[in-house]
């Protein structure tokens, strides 16, 4: 299934476990699927020089990010035999321990989903104009750098 329309990947605040569970449940009618794979990015309480990250505040060039993600999505459908693909990223504040990125791929067979999920997550990190500001417990901050 190829998506033609540009979708909005952004969700305000954390991505909840209920949202993820619902997303899984919606696939029970798609009985040609034999394998799902899910990546969940979680905000880590990093210790930076004795200060602990309590949340990340996400901002983005939303229109460009949605366009870039559309291109990544189309290219990934070309590259792998996938039945469907869902990508969600948080905007605004996400507390440590909460989910900020949800990537979900489905295919008739397992090998495709293992490869596709890694490919997608790496592409999102490298190409989507999204920014994380790490907020410390004392309310100071630093801009997150992806490693």
């Amino acid at each position: 299934m190829k998506s033609e329309k540009i979708k909005n990947i952004f969700v305000q605040g954390a991505i909840t476990p209920e949202f993820i569970a619902n997303s899984i449940a919606k696939h029970q009618v798609k009985t040609q699927i034999g394998a799902h794979d899910i990546f969940l990015g979680q905000v880590r309480a990093d210790n930076v020089d004795g200060k602990i990250v309590s949340a990340i505040e996400y901002t983005a060039h939303e229109e460009m990010a949605n366009q870039v993600l559309h291109e990544i999505r189309e290219a990934t459908f070309e590259k792998f035999n996938l039945t469907c693909m869902h990508i969600y990223h948080s905007l605004g504040s996400v507390a440590s321990g909460e989910i900020c990125l949800f990537v979900f791929v489905s295919s008739p067979r397992r090998k495709e989903v293992f490869q596709a999920i890694e490919h997608l997550v790496e592409e999102i990190k490298a190409k989507a104009p999204i920014y994380g500001k790490e907020i410390f417990e004392d309310e100071s901050h630093q801009w997150k750098l992806n490693s």
Binding site: M64, L101, Y131, N146
Partner: peptide
């Protein structure tokens, strides 16, 4: 630098569309 929603080089012509200055991305 992005013009419209596309990354561009310094030498590209201005079209009047939105210009975005984008530091290294840190999503996820």
């Amino acid at each position: 630098i992005a013009q419209g929603n596309k990354l561009v080089t310094d030498q590209i012509k201005l079209t009047g569309e939105l210009i975005a200055l984008l530091p290294p991305f840190s999503g996820g």
